[in-house]
Design a protein around this nucleic acid. Sequence first.
RNA 1: GGCUCCAUAGUUCAAGGGAUAGAACAAAAGUUUCCUAAACUUUAGAUCCAGGUUCGAGUCCUGGUGGAGCUACCA
Length: 593
Amino acid sequence: MNLETILSKYAQKAVKSLYGVECDTFEFQVTRKEFEGDITLVVFPLLKYIKDNPVAIGQKIGDYFVDNADVVKGYNVIKGFLNIEIHNSYYLDGFNKIKDDQQFGISSKNKGQKAVMVEYASPNTNKPLHLGHIRNVLLGYSVAQILKASGKKVYKTQVINDRGIHICKSMLAWQKFGNGETPQTTGLKGDKLVGNYYVAFDKEYKHQINELISKGKSEEEAKKQAPIILEAQQMLLDWEAGNPEVLELWNKMNTWVYDGFDVTYKNIGVDFDCNYYESNTYLLGKDVVEDGLSKGVFYKKPDNSVWIDLTDEGLDEKLVLRSDGTSVYITQDIGTAIQRVNDYPDVNGMVYTVGNEQDYHFKVLFLILKKLGYSWAENLYHLSYGMVDLPSGKMKSREGTVVDADDLIADMSRTAAEISEELGKLEGYSETEKQELYKTIGLGALKYFILKVDPKKRILFDPRESIDFQGNTGPFIQYTYARVQSILRKSNIEPGGTIDLDYVLLDKEKELIKLLFYFPEVVQNAAENYSPALIANYTYDLVKEFNSFYQSIPILAADTDAQKDFRVQLSRAVAYAIKNAFAMLGIVVPDRM
RNA sequence: GGCUCCAUAGUUCAAGGGAUAGAACAAAAGUUUCCUAAACUUUAGAUCCAGGUUCGAGUCCUGGUGGAGCUACCA
């Protein structure tokens, strides 16, 4: 039971006995540093029920606390704020309960109940992954970890967009200009190779358009009549018809791309429990539409196209089946959602990590699924995030301003290596260990940089300024962790034992314990809000407090054995929290750096 | 046109309707015979505008301004 809950109970009794008022919700906040006290009851909200002045109310409740609540040592009232001082023994007792818990902050309470499926990445197979995908993947993966840590069962998944005209473009260009090139013959990553042909297609397409325009065609006509686009369209038809040659090429090139993606995912440190391929799912959903039609959820227009009317919900009419009976994007998404629940019957909710340009699409999708009457449709969440922009604006592949995922990761490692080598603290590390560490630090910087920002907001990424390794950054937090590990190596104080409840706590020590107590709540909060940023911010606060403690208070050289013991154990508990919090962000913490 | 999201120090980010709006980077100054200076300690600096609700508004509401996005029988 946390402090707020305990104090709420006393507060409830207090207002009952003092004023005869029934009230069960109270507003607490952490006492500001400039005031005496540990936790503060805000009195103002009580004015609705109690006719008295705020200071008097505060004092009376404060007196009641001191007389009745064991944990309360004293209080002061400033304006409408009742600042409550808590006995050190409360903190020490609580600390004894958590200090050896390596899983601290990770809840296991809801295990075995309903699961949630988290979708992220969702790449196209015609282009390599870029910085935008990195934000997507990091967010999705992190939210999955946070949900797990909050006690939920989670499946991680992606939808791979492996069909359509865009894939045919790369295939066609490879056929025409590829001379049989493969990742093996060129040494290129498969996704990069295929991406190059996508660009090659575009180049040729533009060339043909210009030629046609010079022959007197309008731009519109030229775009439709360029031979290469006609060929691509034919290829798509062949693909849909099951032409074996086209399918073989499609398979071959997609395999290259998947191999390339696997390398990138592994580099980033993310994975999936299952994959859905659009080539398997694009036909799904049609039966559901038929069914919904009979239920009156959808309606048919004279040309046989099927629609849903969402004007009552403030949205538009939306097409769900074309007049020729083929499905559209949303039809497929309806089908995929249902398929997932069929495949994983314990799934009772889904999180879609998709950019905010699709806010409208997901609003519609969720509404449709609700109208179709699926119980799990209540638990769908669009984890919508802002674009990653460059100082010049949007990333555009045609202008070559895309920040490639692999390149960026390599860059980050390189920067980490430069800084590390300059500092020269890695005596005794082998070259492999060093490289591993540089990657850990580089990735830590990148991931923290992206995840500390509220998902909704767009991120500005300036490739020239790169990403900091100092201040409010991943490496700063990793560094603190490494420092603690160093202390633990040097001390021979093992986990276990109990801290004496009479131990005299210094302010900075108490602050750290308070922050630790707050961690499980932060995890729940982050899970409810699907927000890795909350975890990142919390970790930063904790680490900042620890560094201040570390700097001003001797640990191994403490005056007494009791102090040394306590401070080492406190440091270890902080390290557990850092490690677990960072794991929720998908960031690894090093033992040295 | 309609709808959605965003707007906080020079810059990048914080702030569950609560006290004097926090950090970091950049700027200025200091701290290594001491547990890792990727650190710590100081200084200076901000809520887009106008109304409203509230005991209390960066936060909620209305209207502006500026930016982004959506508004396809594409995915």
